[in-house]
Write a protein that binds this DNA or RNA. Structure first.
Lengths: 244, 244
DNA sequence: GTCTATACCCTGATAGAC
DNA sequence: GTCTATCAGGGTATAGAC
């Protein structure tokens, strides 16, 4: 962030920010594919090529938009976890505390930002399900540190559960949460439930989801998985990705 | 399989099928946006305009492809449920039976079809999270009857759980399953776990997921939700959130 | 370094000839 | 029914103006 001291023409540093803001708005409104660079740059009042000059490509622009939001969310998540662990003073946290700190913070943030926050999370969820170079870049860089912290907390909270099991269940919880957010908007489409009250669903969503996640996280272990004793030799080269 | 008895004029009815098969292959390989009508029709050996003539649009073609697969899957799901209920002879099924009949059938079908089956389910999952006219058309038409049957079975299996709660938890289970399938391919990217064995993950995925889903489905009810019949409004009269 | 104007190629879609 | 020609719109790369 080079603080160039432009005085008269504020475009120099404003352009990038304006593109970013317009991109966020358009991406939220139309989705990734529905948004066009021409509309984004048009809304920002800049030329089409300015977008590519500052961000290289549409995907990189999208990445940057998500990045900006994810940073705030993950900072908050780390802050909450720090506070919890500080209060616990060395003792393992309760699973409910950890789950709430991670997914509760996510949902509260989304709800607090209104429909746009939900759309943002829908985009996140969509990105998570698409196996592309994208997630390897954004998520492993921005999500991984937070995930490591929370996984470590869960490992301490549930010492009797195999770590791979926790990793998988964390993944399952991510999926349930993603659908929980999307479901607020779409669930009434596939199910014609008779309870017309959809307004308080948003308020009740968090406790609903929390009960489900905790029930899944603390479920009895599957039968076939509880045998890591056959090959105790871990650390065979430490994650040697020989993936051709 | 397809005995091409036609010798000269095989195009008449084959064209539509060939486009459909090529579309399925390309959609699975490249995703919806990555696939192009030119490549699909090119692989099918027909003209570009033939695709639009027979299916109207790319989205309708995609819809038809998914439709064909979903029909088989849902037929199998209904068959399994019929068989279970027939054996139970009027008695409520166990939740584990219902969950396995729905999600287990899904996963077993996906795994049996190899990477293409997984890709297909990834497309389904992606479609579920996108709130468009698409899901309202395909899913409400093809999914809804199956969902109704399974929801009814769950209502009988869990009479003490409010029905809205079951509907939500069903939605959560869908999300967890969607991520479970996607995670087979992508989980190793975001987590550098030290267990190098990924081959048996596919075999262990189903029991892992089943334990999680059942734990979530039978979790204790959230505190604020356990009043379906006591009061219609619960004093919370605010209907519309007024977030400026 | 920033930004604009413009051209390039690909996409889905359509009209009209056969 | 099928094909050719053509369209508007998309992302992207580049040349050139400040």
């Amino acid at each position: 962030m080079g603080a160039t001291s432009q005085t008269a023409t504020a475009d120099n540093r404003d352009t990038r920010e304006r593109i970013l803001d317009a991109a966020e708005a358009v991406f939220m409104a139309c989705g990734y594919d529905g948004a066009s660079m021409r509309q984004i740059t048009g809304d920002a009042g800049v030329n089409l090529a300015a977008g590519h000059y500052h961000f290289g490509s549409k995907e990189d622009l999208f990445k940057t938009v998500l990045y900006r939001r994810l940073r705030l969310l993950n900072q908050e998540r780390l802050r909450v976890l720090d506070e919890l662990e500080s209060k616990a003073d060395g003792a393992p946290l309760k699973p409910s505390q950890i789950v709430d700190a991670f997914f509760g913070t996510l949902l509260r943030t989304a709800i607090a930002h209104g429909p746009r926050g939900r759309t943002f999370l829908r985009l996140i969820g969509r990105t998570l399900t698409e196996p592309s170079e994208f997630i390897a870049t954004v998520l492993s860089k921005e999500f991984a540190p937070v995930l490591e912290r929370y996984k470590a907390a869960l490992f301490r909270a549930l010492p009797e559960v195999p770590r791979e099991e926790i990793v998988w269940r964390f993944h399952f919880m991510l999926g349930a949460t993603s659908y929980a957010i999307a479901g607020v908007d779409t669930l009434r489409l596939v199910t014609d439930w008779q309870t017309g009250a959809v307004d308080d669903d948003l308020d009740q969503l968090l406790p609903r989801l929390m009960s489900f996640l905790l029930g899944g996280l603390r479920a009895p272990l599957p039968a076939a998985t509880a045998a890591p004793s056959t090959s105790p030799t871990r650390g065979n080269g430490r994650n040697r990705r020989k993936k051709p």
